[in-house]
Nucleic acid binder design. Structure first.
Lengths: 197, 197
DNA sequence: TACCTAACGAGACGAACCGTTCATATACAA
DNA sequence: TTGTATATGAACGGTTCGTCTCGTTAGGTA
């Protein structure tokens, strides 16, 4: 019968007046799969709907733009940021680069790079990215202020600018596809600068 | 008559077996105009063709992808890079940031940001951007090596990494829409790092 | 229980965009 | 003058976009 046909092809259906977590998972999985298989331009709403066997209205309901979908994918695969506290700011920075570059070398890097790209032409993504970036800056500011309190840093250091430079370096290596550098080299440059004492 | 109709609506036509410079100018102007008026997503090949009153085949012949068109627009409005040589690396860096941020605050910044974005999903643009970036890195490496020779820098400084950090900082401020910072503040952080002597 | 509301898959719809094809117009060479 | 090569613009089929409708499912509420 007709009412059985769809149940035979695939089972996922409405589970009532609430979001179906299976549907959400299927859509985000499909988006990530397409993204990795066909690159950023392979991620179209139509293709995701086909791949996930979902209705387009369902996708647009939860992720109204392509950028929102990208943010959803990244949130799904992202773990919590943990900052090492080795008592030495240089090794803290080095550990951060090693950790984030390794994480980005799996699928997450391509997703995050596309989010930065999308932010250049989608104001909502830009705002979400700015908020996320602000959190990361604050994380690093506390690390720097801790280091300053224990007398490791020069008193004139602007902690916010220092934090910003670290994030800038990380993003830059992601965007230019150079995630294979040694974190310790980057850390040395950022910790000591260039000018002789 | 039919063969006169098109000549009446607009005059630009083939000038034989060579590129029509008027057409090139009209297309690049149209692309820039759309880009500034409607943002990155307003720049479609169709819209450019309409705005420039040109055939799409003409556009695709000279700029086979959207990214190539972006590169063409940027090349058209970009001036030559000149590096100050004040004898002090910190003020050289500060002058660079002031100069490039001012340049980017006019239309060029939006164009270059979109090129970086496009490079995340277009391999050709990524290669062109890498080549361009490589030139800028080399510029800065010579500046740093000059400073090292006159004894201004620590001997252990990696000039390439230092150059990379400057470009990273500039890009980051562009991508996060913060071109209104003081170049001297950025220069101080990059020149002296954070760690006490 | 009976009704209301909301999520879901499917796909139709017009608009816009993509990349290509084709016919024509022009310059240059033989 | 005639032939060839290239630039140019209009048109075409296919894809994507974002919205909408439809029938179905199931939780929440009275």
């Amino acid at each position: 019968m007709d009412q059985h046909r769809q149940s035979e092809t695939h089972q996922r259906r409405s589970i009532g007046a609430r979001k179906n977590p299976n549907t959400e998972a299927a859509i985000l999985d499909a988006a990530l799969k397409l993204l990795l298989a066909k690159g950023g331009k392979g991620l179209s709403m139509d293709a995701v709907a086909r791949e996930a066997k979902a209705g387009k209205a369902t996708i647009y309901r939860w992720w109204p733009t392509r950028g929102a979908l990208l943010l959803g994918v990244y949130a799904r695969i992202k773990g919590a940021h943990v900052h090492a506290d080795t008592g030495c700011i240089e090794t803290d920075i080095a550990a951060f680069f090693e950790h984030v570059f390794e994480f980005w070398q799996k699928d997450a890097g391509r997703v995050f790079a596309l989010i930065i790209a999308e932010a250049q032409s989608d104001l909502d993504v830009a705002e979400a990215l700015a908020a996320y970036r602000s959190e990361r800056i604050n994380d690093w500011m506390t690390v720097f202020e801790r280091a300053k309190e224990r007398g490791e840093l020069r008193d004139t250091v602007d902690c916010k600018l220092a934090a910003d430079t670290i994030i800038a370096t990380a993003w830059h290596h992601l965007l230019t596809n150079r995630l294979d550098v040694k974190g310790s080299d980057l850390a040395r440059t950022l910790a000591y600068g260039v000018v002789k004492s």
